[in-house]
Simulated scan of single mutants.
Amino acid sequence: MSARIYLADDEANIRQLLESFLVREGYEVSTFETGDQLLLAFMENPADVVVLDVMMPGSDGFAIAQEIRKRSQVPLILLTARDSDQDYLDGFKAGIDDYFTKPFSPLKLVLRIKAILQRLEYEHQDESAKKMEFADLALKPNDRVLVSRGNQLPLTNTEYDVLRVLMAEAGQAVSRERLLREIWGYESNVETRATDDTIKRLRKKLRQIESQVSIETVWGYGFKLCQKQA
Protein backbone atom coordinates (compact mmCIF):
# COMPACT_ATOMS: atom_id res chain seq x y z
CA MET A 1 0.00 0.00 0.00
CA SER A 2 1.41 3.37 -1.01
CA ALA A 3 1.99 6.11 1.53
CA ARG A 4 -0.67 8.80 1.85
CA ILE A 5 0.45 12.44 1.58
CA TYR A 6 -1.74 15.41 2.56
CA LEU A 7 -0.78 18.80 1.10
CA ALA A 8 -2.40 22.17 1.90
CA ASP A 9 -1.50 25.32 -0.05
CA ASP A 10 -3.78 28.10 -1.29
CA GLU A 11 -1.81 28.40 -4.56
CA ALA A 12 -3.27 25.98 -7.11
CA ASN A 13 -0.11 25.87 -9.22
CA ILE A 14 1.98 24.74 -6.21
CA ARG A 15 -0.58 22.08 -5.30
CA GLN A 16 -0.64 20.75 -8.84
CA LEU A 17 3.14 20.81 -9.25
CA LEU A 18 3.87 19.01 -5.98
CA GLU A 19 1.06 16.53 -6.54
CA SER A 20 2.50 15.60 -9.96
CA PHE A 21 5.96 15.01 -8.47
CA LEU A 22 4.60 12.92 -5.58
CA VAL A 23 2.19 10.85 -7.68
CA ARG A 24 5.08 10.09 -10.04
CA GLU A 25 6.85 8.52 -7.05
CA GLY A 26 3.87 6.28 -6.40
CA TYR A 27 2.34 8.12 -3.44
CA GLU A 28 -1.36 8.64 -2.81
CA VAL A 29 -1.83 12.42 -2.66
CA SER A 30 -4.72 14.56 -1.43
CA THR A 31 -4.48 18.35 -1.82
CA PHE A 32 -6.38 21.05 0.02
CA GLU A 33 -6.81 24.79 -0.47
CA THR A 34 -6.88 25.44 3.29
CA GLY A 35 -5.34 23.92 6.38
CA ASP A 36 -8.79 23.62 7.95
CA GLN A 37 -9.89 21.31 5.11
CA LEU A 38 -6.76 19.22 5.59
CA LEU A 39 -7.31 18.97 9.34
CA LEU A 40 -10.87 17.71 8.88
CA ALA A 41 -9.66 15.08 6.42
CA PHE A 42 -6.82 14.08 8.75
CA MET A 43 -9.24 13.57 11.66
CA GLU A 44 -11.29 11.22 9.49
CA ASN A 45 -8.39 9.41 7.83
CA PRO A 46 -4.82 10.24 8.96
CA ALA A 47 -2.02 10.62 6.42
CA ASP A 48 1.56 9.32 6.55
CA VAL A 49 3.10 12.76 5.87
CA VAL A 50 1.55 16.25 6.00
CA VAL A 51 2.82 19.28 4.05
CA LEU A 52 1.45 22.67 5.14
CA ASP A 53 1.78 26.17 3.75
CA VAL A 54 2.00 28.88 6.42
CA MET A 55 -0.24 31.59 4.97
CA MET A 56 -3.65 30.24 3.98
CA PRO A 57 -7.27 31.38 4.31
CA GLY A 58 -8.65 30.45 7.72
CA SER A 59 -6.22 28.89 10.19
CA ASP A 60 -2.56 29.31 9.29
CA GLY A 61 -0.06 26.48 8.99
CA PHE A 62 1.25 26.96 12.53
CA ALA A 63 -2.22 26.51 14.06
CA ILE A 64 -2.98 23.45 11.93
CA ALA A 65 0.39 21.90 12.82
CA GLN A 66 -0.35 22.37 16.53
CA GLU A 67 -3.77 20.74 16.18
CA ILE A 68 -2.36 17.77 14.26
CA ARG A 69 0.49 17.38 16.75
CA LYS A 70 -2.05 17.09 19.60
CA ARG A 71 -3.41 14.00 17.87
CA SER A 72 -0.47 12.44 16.05
CA GLN A 73 3.30 12.29 15.63
CA VAL A 74 2.90 12.20 11.84
CA PRO A 75 5.82 13.91 10.04
CA LEU A 76 4.97 17.57 9.36
CA ILE A 77 6.69 19.73 6.72
CA LEU A 78 6.04 23.48 6.60
CA LEU A 79 6.18 25.70 3.51
CA THR A 80 6.57 29.46 3.80
CA ALA A 81 7.21 32.46 1.59
CA ARG A 82 8.87 34.33 4.45
CA ASP A 83 12.41 33.40 5.45
CA SER A 84 12.29 34.89 8.93
CA ASP A 85 13.76 33.55 12.15
CA GLN A 86 10.41 34.04 13.90
CA ASP A 87 8.55 31.92 11.35
CA TYR A 88 11.21 29.26 11.70
CA LEU A 89 10.94 29.25 15.50
CA ASP A 90 7.13 29.30 15.45
CA GLY A 91 7.13 26.32 13.11
CA PHE A 92 9.35 24.17 15.30
CA LYS A 93 7.42 25.20 18.41
CA ALA A 94 4.32 23.89 16.64
CA GLY A 95 6.07 20.54 16.25
CA ILE A 96 7.08 20.49 12.60
CA ASP A 97 9.84 18.19 11.34
CA ASP A 98 11.21 20.27 8.48
CA TYR A 99 10.85 23.66 6.84
CA PHE A 100 11.04 24.77 3.19
CA THR A 101 11.21 28.42 2.12
CA LYS A 102 9.55 29.40 -1.15
CA PRO A 103 10.69 29.22 -3.86
CA PHE A 104 12.01 25.72 -3.27
CA SER A 105 12.89 22.69 -5.36
CA PRO A 106 9.97 20.23 -5.64
CA LEU A 107 12.56 17.50 -6.11
CA LYS A 108 14.21 18.30 -2.76
CA LEU A 109 10.82 18.18 -1.04
CA VAL A 110 10.10 14.79 -2.62
CA LEU A 111 13.52 13.50 -1.55
CA ARG A 112 12.84 14.68 2.00
CA ILE A 113 9.49 12.88 2.09
CA LYS A 114 11.06 9.72 0.66
CA ALA A 115 13.79 9.81 3.32
CA ILE A 116 11.20 10.18 6.09
CA LEU A 117 9.06 7.31 4.83
CA GLN A 118 12.01 4.99 4.16
CA ARG A 119 13.35 5.55 7.67
CA LEU A 120 9.97 4.93 9.29
CA GLU A 121 9.47 1.79 7.21
CA TYR A 122 12.91 0.48 8.12
CA GLU A 123 12.31 1.04 11.80
CA HIS A 124 8.90 -0.60 11.62
CA GLN A 125 10.35 -3.68 9.88
CA ASP A 126 13.37 -3.92 12.16
CA GLU A 127 11.99 -6.40 14.65
CA SER A 128 15.38 -6.54 16.37
CA ALA A 129 15.08 -2.88 17.41
CA LYS A 130 15.25 -2.67 21.18
CA LYS A 131 15.01 0.05 23.76
CA MET A 132 18.12 2.22 23.76
CA GLU A 133 19.45 3.50 27.07
CA PHE A 134 22.05 6.00 28.17
CA ALA A 135 22.37 7.35 31.73
CA ASP A 136 18.82 8.29 32.83
CA LEU A 137 17.37 8.24 29.30
CA ALA A 138 15.67 5.46 27.37
CA LEU A 139 14.19 5.48 23.88
CA LYS A 140 11.28 3.14 23.18
CA PRO A 141 11.27 2.39 19.42
CA ASN A 142 7.76 0.95 19.30
CA ASP A 143 6.21 4.07 20.82
CA ARG A 144 8.92 6.52 19.65
CA VAL A 145 8.99 8.24 23.03
CA LEU A 146 11.72 9.23 25.47
CA VAL A 147 11.53 7.88 29.00
CA SER A 148 13.45 9.33 31.94
CA ARG A 149 13.06 7.98 35.47
CA GLY A 150 9.61 6.62 34.71
CA ASN A 151 8.32 9.74 32.98
CA GLN A 152 7.50 9.81 29.28
CA LEU A 153 8.54 12.84 27.22
CA PRO A 154 6.90 13.42 23.82
CA LEU A 155 9.24 13.97 20.88
CA THR A 156 8.62 14.87 17.27
CA ASN A 157 9.75 12.29 14.71
CA THR A 158 12.82 14.33 13.89
CA GLU A 159 13.75 14.88 17.55
CA TYR A 160 13.41 11.16 18.18
CA ASP A 161 15.58 10.21 15.21
CA VAL A 162 18.33 12.70 16.05
CA LEU A 163 18.44 11.50 19.65
CA ARG A 164 18.48 7.88 18.47
CA VAL A 165 21.59 8.50 16.35
CA LEU A 166 23.31 10.38 19.18
CA MET A 167 22.48 7.64 21.70
CA ALA A 168 23.80 4.94 19.37
CA GLU A 169 27.11 6.84 19.38
CA ALA A 170 26.96 8.09 22.99
CA GLY A 171 30.22 9.74 23.99
CA GLN A 172 31.33 9.99 20.36
CA ALA A 173 30.99 12.98 18.07
CA VAL A 174 28.40 12.72 15.28
CA SER A 175 28.83 15.07 12.32
CA ARG A 176 26.18 17.47 11.06
CA GLU A 177 26.66 15.93 7.62
CA ARG A 178 25.75 12.48 8.92
CA LEU A 179 22.64 13.81 10.66
CA LEU A 180 21.56 15.69 7.54
CA ARG A 181 22.07 12.57 5.45
CA GLU A 182 20.43 10.03 7.77
CA ILE A 183 17.62 12.14 9.24
CA TRP A 184 16.81 14.70 6.56
CA GLY A 185 17.93 12.78 3.47
CA TYR A 186 20.33 15.45 2.22
CA GLU A 187 23.28 14.00 0.34
CA SER A 188 25.43 17.16 0.48
CA ASN A 189 26.23 19.91 2.96
CA VAL A 190 23.23 22.14 2.24
CA GLU A 191 22.52 25.43 3.95
CA THR A 192 19.94 24.55 6.59
CA ARG A 193 19.32 25.30 10.25
CA ALA A 194 17.29 22.14 10.75
CA THR A 195 19.98 20.22 12.63
CA ASP A 196 20.90 23.03 15.02
CA ASP A 197 17.29 23.92 15.75
CA THR A 198 16.41 20.30 16.48
CA ILE A 199 19.37 20.08 18.86
CA LYS A 200 18.19 23.27 20.62
CA ARG A 201 14.74 21.78 21.16
CA LEU A 202 16.21 18.53 22.48
CA ARG A 203 18.45 20.43 24.90
CA LYS A 204 15.46 22.37 26.19
CA LYS A 205 13.48 19.17 26.76
CA LEU A 206 16.40 17.53 28.56
CA ARG A 207 16.67 20.58 30.84
CA GLN A 208 12.94 20.43 31.55
CA ILE A 209 13.24 16.91 32.95
CA GLU A 210 16.55 17.73 34.70
CA SER A 211 18.28 14.93 32.84
CA GLN A 212 21.83 13.85 33.64
CA VAL A 213 22.50 13.92 29.90
CA SER A 214 23.67 16.88 27.83
CA ILE A 215 24.24 17.40 24.12
CA GLU A 216 27.59 19.07 23.55
CA THR A 217 28.57 20.95 20.40
CA VAL A 218 31.78 19.79 18.75
CA TRP A 219 32.72 23.04 17.04
CA GLY A 220 33.16 22.79 13.30
CA TYR A 221 31.97 19.17 13.25
CA GLY A 222 28.76 18.19 15.01
CA PHE A 223 27.39 17.04 18.35
CA LYS A 224 28.06 14.54 21.13
CA LEU A 225 25.84 13.02 23.81
CA CYS A 226 27.50 13.13 27.25
CA GLN A 227 26.63 12.35 30.85
CA LYS A 228 26.98 15.33 33.14
CA GLN A 229 29.66 15.15 35.78
CA ALA A 230 28.32 14.76 39.34
Rank of each mutant, 00 (worst) to 15 (best):
K200T: 08
D53N: 08
D85V: 15
A65C: 11
L18I: 14
M167E: 07
W184F: 09
Q152G: 03
R82N: 11
I199S: 02
E123N: 09
D143K: 13
I183A: 01
L79E: 08
G26V: 07
V49C: 12
G35A: 13
L166Y: 03
D87R: 02
P75H: 07
K205M: 10
V29I: 12
K102V: 13
S128I: 08
A230P: 11
Q37H: 10
S105N: 14
F62K: 00
M132H: 01
L76K: 04
F104I: 15
K205L: 09
R176N: 13
M1N: 03
D136H: 05
R207A: 10
F32L: 06
F100E: 07
V23W: 00
M55N: 12
T80Y: 03
Q16C: 07
D53T: 10
S20V: 10
S72N: 08
D197T: 08
L163P: 11
G222E: 10
A47P: 03
A8N: 07
T156Y: 04
A194T: 12
G58M: 09
P57D: 06
E177K: 04
L166K: 03
G61P: 01
L153W: 09
D48E: 10
W219L: 11
R201C: 08
R193Q: 13
K70Q: 13
A41D: 09
D90W: 08
L79H: 11
D143P: 00
